[in-house]
Design a protein around this nucleic acid. Structure first.
Lengths: 210, 210
DNA sequence: GCCTTTCGCTACGGGTCGTAGCGTAACTCT
DNA sequence: AGAGTTACGCTACGACCCGTAGCGAAAGGC
């Protein structure tokens, strides 16, 4: 997660304090809530965590990587219980994701780190590994379940399946983020019902593409 | 666009230089390309524009508002020619939007100002007025044309129509942004064909909701 | 006990912010 | 033509944050 996973190190010498790690990440989330992304400073986080500023820089190179790690753990909450139908599964996970985006920490942090990642390849990879992939797995299991139920046809061309998975992921995540942060309107049951109807109705047409 | 539209002022005294306005916005775009959002500074932009730093602050209160105005004009390029079918219209405008997002100025700036706007209501309104609404109009005209062609049923409940317009807008814009900036994969013809097939196929199901 | 690494602490140069003050330039109104 | 008003370029300023260096002390492995 953080740079503690360094292969050549931590074999000898004083080990890094795990309490400091968790305190820093917790302090980062608190600072995000109170100050938002742009006014959050490394010195402030260090003060909240009861830790020296140098301790932060020993673990994270900059603000972006720190915030990614601080927010990533929140995405562990996302789950995909089997509700019996593809549409119900979609609606449930979308509402979960929307609730996550409503939290002030994620609201101010997510777009900021993505914006930063457009000019920072390592950061982009970090976001992908600790946030994006975690969401994408939900799409894969949702599709598999729908196939087992017979709601979707079995796989033909594996490339087409991957492309459709990617598409569905970008459509769902993108639509929810855009609705919540750009349009700044609520992701409520009525909107989610429309979105899932659009997806379920459109999936047949996409599958026909081959 | 900028604060020059101030009612009480500009009646007497030296008028603001329009050349300075355009030079500043141009310099801002150039700085976005070279430095990106996070390393762009007001002093740097002033230097590029051949203008004093105080002149910038007389027009824009902060970096975010300046960048919104600098990027907003790029969205004037977006057009929706009538290509004869709903799917063709969608694919064309999506490719246009994707090309816009590929430009380094918009790539680094859009997400950043949206992130900032989560804690800044005036900025959010500025983005809505000068960027978001400009895109949303395309959805409205696209739907109207499709109805005239008979591809979509005529309006019944006006509330439902508005809700569907909002949904389509968030889905299209959100999916393209997410694909381009979060997944960081190309918005090419193959992907666009899948997306438009999903939308056209799903619109019928959404219309059935009432 | 020795070595290595982390810890908190202090201090630093460098950079950006946003503002104030100055004299000058440009335009309006009388 | 002159007075009044506003924008301009320039300089300087305190405040803040960055990221790093150096210190002595603490906490582990060998």
């Amino acid at each position: 997660m953080c740079s503690r996973t360094n292969p050549r190190s931590s074999r000898t010498g004083r080990p890094r304090s795990p309490e400091a790690d968790t305190a820093i990440l917790k302090a980062t989330r608190a600072a995000l809530v109170e100050l938002g992304w742009s006014k959050l400073t490394m010195g402030d986080v260090a003060g909240r965590a009861g830790v020296a500023k140098t301790t932060l820089y020993r673990r994270w190179a900059n603000k972006s990587e720190l915030v990614v790690d601080a927010v990533a753990v929140l995405f562990d909450e996302l789950e995909l219980p089997d509700l019996g139908s593809l549409q119900a599964d979609i609606e449930h996970v979308v509402l979960q994701f929307a609730a996550l985006l409503e939290r002030p920490e994620t609201k101010t942090a997510l777009m900021a780190v993505v914006a930063e990642s457009t000019r920072d390849a390592p950061l982009r990879e970090r976001i992908r590994a600790s946030i994006v992939d975690r969401q994408k797995r939900l799409v894969l299991t949702g599709r598999r379940r729908a196939q087992e139920r017979g709601e979707l046809p079995a796989d033909r061309d594996p490339d087409a399946v991957d492309a459709t998975d990617d598409l569905i992921f970008d459509v769902i995540a993108g639509a929810v983020v855009h609705r919540a942060l750009v349009s700044a309107e609520p992701v409520d049951e009525a909107w989610v019902a429309r979105l899932s109807a659009l997806l379920v109705g459109g999936l047949g047409a996409v599958a026909a593409l081959g």
